[in-house]
Design a protein around this nucleic acid. Structure first.
Lengths: 356, 356
DNA sequence: TTGAAAGCGGTACCAC
DNA sequence: GTGGTACCGCTTTCAA
């Protein structure tokens, strides 16, 4: 192993000067710099990042804890975040939490986390208190979920509004028998006559899907004669989507519209609908959430709520860097703008909508 | 910041004893252990991994350098490798190389690499010499690509044989006008009358797709009256697949079979075929490569060459751990078993095959 | 069973 | 411009 000391000796300078050269500091003569770089080149010397981290107190690594690495949405998110943080000199370690409280705890826990300069947490099962207790003073940005986490920086999706907009699209196309696929039971949510779209719930982080369900309900409640059934399931997987769609068909045979909690579920559902001989969009309209890359390439292509990926990644990065720079900064939160991207899966009028 | 020293002081022992307790070493009295753990608990102390890494000489981090993080195949690979290495106490940093030599060089280069205990490299543009020069003594496992890298541990896919099997499937179904989508020009490959399936080429790592093209050619050459046109493109993306499929239709209007270099390309192609009014599998049969999760959920579902994901990840892990344990071990290589998974996209006889 | 000493390989600080 | 000194926080070694 070549060390900085070795390089210094070979170049006839002190380790400190080698350090200065490699860090690009300006207080080195051109001649010395050249000589040092020549030795570095020749010996293939690399700085030891462990020593560097110890001395500097920073590792240059950011953790990204997501429920499932291998899902359309989180794959997209990870790829974008990796690309975005690279020029900031930060690398990303992806931790898989398996959508469980235990997994999330394990991901944040103890030794692991101390290796990170920051953590981006897409939590599903955790309490804010869990996070607080374990993360300690680690900069944390919470992603896309819970609405009342005021102690953390927080980048939220327009879960409720996005789902409501998607649902309205189906209703405008004439759908009246909706299923909210992969969302919690709508009836179990806060009553629709309370004064806002925020359920008061037990305060855990994992209610993106609950908020989406609320959006569906809000939109459906506004249209007399329309109804929505929730067919619930936790994991957002292709097979889960297919399975839930089969269940939906069994429980709501007159089904004419499917609002899916994620695009992954929607893609699985498209497959199950094809198996069942239901044509999309001729018999059933389908809309997803996330606007993943695949949505534009399914057959039929999938309408979806686009959460503004660029914006989310940019905002996440901004908050993370800000907190890393200033741990005492007041927590900030923001909600991504969204849009409904319409594609083939909703491009059909099932019946003329009633005058409203 | 709480340090081990602080904990030791609070527990009335030496730092060394704290270290022993936390490392689970047995030479500590039960009483002492309890006292130390109590303080650890109370203070929320976490060992500093940078210091640990420096002292131990290992970081517990493995790099995974792939052309594109956000692709079906590499997403799958990353997820599996992360899951597999986690119980070994290894975390994975994903580096995106952008399928370019420069990107790959950057990924391996300099400071970055010294932070890793090992590197899994899915190289596309690199020379073995590049890798050798830069990786130095870093344990490297090369994935899925080049065939003549004898200086590295190497886990190969059955590129040629897999593609040949996929192609034969189409030929048996009666296809005679094939297009090899996303593969290099078949005519530019080694002549089919040479004695083996290995092109001698300029020796860079990135020829998984070339090997697949060779498999297509071999299979097509064995069937009189069949022909295959290569429609080339580098990136394996959905949009690329759609684009190449459009080009394929333009250049080979009588197209009746599509062998795609990857499932991602195939999924994009399915979409373009639907747009062009070509029915799959009624008019055109399509087969992909990789057997990603989505292949079973497209409409029609996609036949694909399955490279044995479990096996590949297991083998990669084995080789990596082995080399980390013994840097001097002789390089080993192995080729994944494969199977052709038939789904709807090839489930149709276009014409009765000629007696063969 | 416990702990003192000696670094691991860098870099901040400050004197020269 | 250059470099000595200390020390980041942990663990290996070995003596007590």
């Amino acid at each position: 192993m070549t060390t900085m000391r070795d390089v210094a000796a070979a170049a006839g300078v002190s380790p400190m000067t080698v350090s200065n050269v490699l860090a690009g500091r300006t207080n080195v003569s051109e001649e010395t710099r050249r000589r040092v770089l020549e030795v570095v080149e020749r010996t293939g010397y690399r700085v030891n990042t462990a020593a560097q981290s110890l001395r500097r107190g920073r590792t240059g690594i950011v953790g990204l804890a997501v429920p499932e690495v291998h899902s359309h949405y989180f794959g997209l998110l990870a790829a974008r975040l990796i690309a975005r943080l690279a020029p900031e000199g930060l690398r990303v370690v992806v931790e898989q939490t398996g959508a469980s409280r235990e997994g999330e705890l394990a991901a944040i826990t103890a030794s692991r986390v101390s290796a990170y300069d920051g953590l981006v947490l897409s939590a599903v099962g955790l309490d804010p208190d869990d996070v607080l207790a374990i993360a300690g003073d680690l900069p944390v940005v919470v992603l896309g979920e819970r609405q009342d986490v005021r102690r953390f920086d927080h980048v939220e999706m327009a879960n409720t509004d996005g789902a409501a907009a998607a649902t309205r699209l189906l209703l405008e196309r004439g759908c009246r028998r909706l299923v909210a696929l992969g969302m919690p039971d709508l009836a179990a949510l806060a009553p629709s006559d309370d004064d806002g779209p925020r359920p008061q719930g037990p305060g855990h982080l994992g209610d993106a899907f609950r908020l989406r369900a609320l959006g569906v309900r809000t939109a459906v409640d506004a249209v007399p004669g329309a109804r929505a059934l929730a067919v619930s399931g936790v994991r957002s997987t292709l097979s889960g989507g297919a399975e839930l769609a089969r269940e939906a068909l069994a429980r709501e045979p007159g089904l004419d519209g499917l609002v899916c909690a994620t695009d992954t579920l929607a893609i699985g559902a498209l497959r199950a609908l094809a198996d069942a001989g239901r044509r999309v969009p001729d018999d059933v309209l389908v809309v997803g959430f996330d606007d993943v890359a695949d949505a534009a390439y399914t057959v039929p292509s999938l309408s979806s709520v686009s959460p503004g990926h660029d914006w989310m990644v940019e905002e996440t990065t901004r908050l993370l860097l800000r907190r890393m720079a200033d741990p005492a900064a007041a927590p900030e939160r923001s909600t991504s703008p969204f849009s409904v991207v319409e594609r083939e899966s909703t491009r059909r009028l099932l019946r003329t909508p009633d005058a409203t």
